[in-house]
Nucleic acid binder design. Structure first.
Lengths: 336, 336
DNA sequence: CTGAAAGCGCTTACAG
DNA sequence: CTGAAAGCGCTTACAG
C-alpha cells in the first residue's frame, strides 16, 4: 500500500500540484471553490503531506534535535517535559538522543543530527571534553551542525553559544552558608572531579562560603566522584566512617544524594539526626514522604522550556549576541 | 553558509554522483583508487549525506516514532532508556512525542509522525479510547500511519497489533495473595476507573485472589482514580479516614503509590506499622532509603527494549502473526 | 568499474 | 486565480 501524494490529490481535484500546494500552505491565492474541492479530496483520500519532501524542497526542516546524557534521570525527564511543551506549541518535531554520558555516543548523536539537518539543537555535552584535541574536535562538530545550538546545564566555556544554566555556585554558596548558620563548621562535600565545569562551580560556591565565614576548608572532607549513584555511595561510606567525620554534607546532584542516603541508611543513621545534608535537586519521593531532605531547588522543566525558547529565538535572529540565561537556585531548608 | 552536497563531492573528485553514492553506501563496485579519492574529498569538505534526501529517494525513512503519555514519569524514563539503547545499535533515529495523556495531543502526535513517514511506531495510547466513535477514529489513524506499530503497556484490545505488556493481573493477584497470606482480609485498592484496560487488569487479579481465598470483596474498599498522584492523594485521605478502614492497600501505579504515601505520612502514620501496602512499580528512592515499600516489580527498560525489538522484527516480516509479549511481574516483599 | 537520466514528493519563482 | 517547469539532494535501474 502506497502513500497518497500531492499528485494524486491534484489529479483527483483536476488542478495542478501548485494549487494543491497553495491550499496546503495557505499561500498564494486560490478561489474558494477550488480550495473547497481540493480540501474535500484531501480529506477523502486521507492525504497528509510528506514532511521529508517538504523539508527537502524548502531547504529547512522542522526538526529540533536534543541530546541528553541520561534519559532515565528524573532531572532530564523534567527537562524533556519542558522541551516537548514548547516544541508542540510551535509545530516542531523532536529528535531525541541519549548519550549515556559517553563521548562516543555523543559524537554519533551529533553526526546523526547533522545528517538530519536539524533546524536547531539543545545540547547537554556528555562530559567535559577537556583535552585540547577533544575541544577542537567538539568545536568542529558543533560548527558542522550548521544550525543554532543552545547549551543546557553544562557550559562549554570555550564556545560562544546560547545557553541556559543554573546558578549552581550561588546555590552551593547559600547552602553552605545555611549549614554554617546552623552551627556546622565541619562540612563535607561530595562532588564530581574538578575537570568538569559542573564540579568547579559547585566547589567554588562551597569554598567561598567557607572563606566568607572564616572557616578553613579541610581537604579530607572533599570527595570527588562522577555524579553517579554507585560512586557516591562508595565515597559516602568512606566519609561516614571517618573518625573525625563532617557533621554536615553537601551532595552535588540528585544521584549523589541517593548514593549518600543509601550509605547513611544502611548504617541505620538518618538525617538530620546523625548528620545534616543539603542536596542539589529535589527528590520527589523524599519530599512526599515527609522526610526532611534539604535541597537546592532547580526547576528542570523551566530549564527545558527556556532552552527551546532561546533556540527558537536564535532561529529567527541568527546574528544577535549569544544569550546566557542563568536560573535561580533557591535553597529549601526542611530541617538542618 | 550552505551545506555541502553530493554534487560538490562529485565535482571535487572528478566523478559522477552515482559513484559518490556508491562509495557512501558501499554498494556496487568502485575501484580502490576512486574510492580513496572520493573518501578524501568527503573528509576534507566535512560532507555528510542528507538523511532527508536519502529518505525521499529511497522511499523509506530510518526514523522511529515513539509516543509516551508522560515523559517525566520515571517509568517512561526507563522505557525510553531501553528504547534508545536498541535504536542506537540499529542506526535508527528516534522522534519522541509526549501526549501528556491528552487524546488531542495524542492525535496531533500521530498525525505528525505520519507526515514524517516514520518507519515504525512504539505507541502507548493516551487513554483508552472507549466510545465507539473514538475507537473507530483511532483505528483509522493507526492504519493511516501505514507502518508497523508496537503497543506498549496499554493494550488496545480491538486492534491486532504487536505489543509488550506486563502481566499486571498476575502481579496484582500475587500481591493480594501475599497480603492475605500475612493475615489481611480487609484489603483496599486504589485503582484507575474501570473504563481503562489497565485498571480492569489490576482489578481482575485483585478480585480473583480474594475469591480464591474465600474473601468477599468490599465495594467501599475499592477506589477509582486516574493514576495521577493528586487524585490518589485525595482518595487515600478518604480511605485512611474510614472508620472501618482496610488494614492493607494495593496502589496501582507509581504515581498512585506516591499519593498514598503522602496522605499516610501527613497523618504521621507509616508502613507497615499502621497499614500495609504493596504498590505497582518500584520507587527507587524508597528502596534506597531502606524504607520497606513492597512492590510489584516491572522492568520498564526491558519493556522498552523488547518493544523496539518487536518493531524491528515486524519491519523485516510485515506479514507474520502479531506477537504479544507478556513480561513477568514478581512481587517484592520487604515487610508486610 | 562508471555515468546519464529519471524519479522520490514537495515548493517556488515565473508567466499568463 | 492558475499552471508548467525547475530544483531540493539523494538513489537506482539501465547501458556501456
Amino acid at each position: 500500500m502506497y502513500n497518497v501524494t500531492i499528485s494524486d490529490i491534484a489529479k483527483d481535484s483536476g488542478v495542478s500540484t501548485t494549487t494543491v500546494s497553495r491550499v496546503l500552505n495557505n499561500s498564494g491565492s486560490v478561489s474558494p471553490e477550488t480550495r473547497e474541492r481540493v480540501l474535500e479530496v484531501i480529506k477523502r483520500r486521507g492525504y497528509s503531506p510528506s514532511a521529508t519532501a517538504r523539508s527537502l524542497s524548502k531547504r529547512v526542516s522542522s526538526t529540533i534535535g536534543v541530546i541528553v546524557p541520561e534519559v532515565d534521570n528524573p532531572f532530564f525527564g523534567e527537562v524533556l517535559r519542558g522541551i516537548t511543551e514548547v516544541i508542540d506549541k510551535n509545530d516542531l518535531t523532536l529528535i531525541c538522543c541519549n548519550s549515556d554520558d559517553d563521548p562516543n555516543k555523543d559524537k554519533k548523536a551529533l553526526e546523526m543530527l547533522k545528517e538530519h539537518r536539524v533546524r536547531g539543537l539543545v545540547y547537554t555535552p556528555a562530559i567535559d571534553y577537556s583535552n585540547k584535541e577533544e575541544k577542537r574536535s567538539l568545536k568542529k562538530m558543533l560548527k558542522d551542525i550548521n544550525s543554532p545550538i543552545v547549551i543546557l546545564d553544562r557550559e562549554i566555556d570555550y564556545l560562544d553559544l546560547d545557553g541556559v544554566f543554573f546558578d549552581d555556585s550561588k546555590g552551593m554558596y547559600n547552602a553552605t552558608k545555611a549549614l554554617i548558620g546552623a552551627g556546622h563548621t565541619k562540612i563535607g562535600i561530595i562532588n564530581g572531579t574538578l575537570d568538569r565545569v559542573l564540579a568547579r562551580n559547585r566547589q567554588e560556591g562551597y569554598l567561598k562560603a567557607l572563606k566568607d565565614s572564616g572557616i578553613i576548608p579541610i581537604k579530607r572532607y572533599m570527595f570527588y566522584g562522577d555524579f553517579r549513584m554507585t560512586t557516591a555511595y562508595e565515597l559516602s561510606k568512606e566519609l561516614l566512617s571517618m573518625k573525625d567525620r563532617p557533621t554536615a554534607v553537601l551532595t552535588c546532584n540528585n544521584r549523589t544524594s541517593m548514593g549518600f542516603l543509601k550509605a547513611l541508611y544502611e548504617l541505620g543513621e538518618s538525617i538530620p539526626e546523625n548528620i545534616s545534608c543539603i542536596g542539589l535537586d529535589r527528590i520527589e519521593a523524599l519530599d512526599i514522604m515527609g522526610i526532611n531532605f534539604n535541597y537546592i531547588k532547580r526547576d528542570a522543566r523551566e530549564m527545558g522550556r527556556q532552552a527551546i525558547e532561546l533556540l527558537i529565538n536564535r532561529m529567527a535572529f541568527p546574528d544577535k549576541e549569544p544569550i546566557k540565561r542563568i536560573l535561580e537556585t533557591p535553597v529549601i531548608i526542611k530541617k538542618i
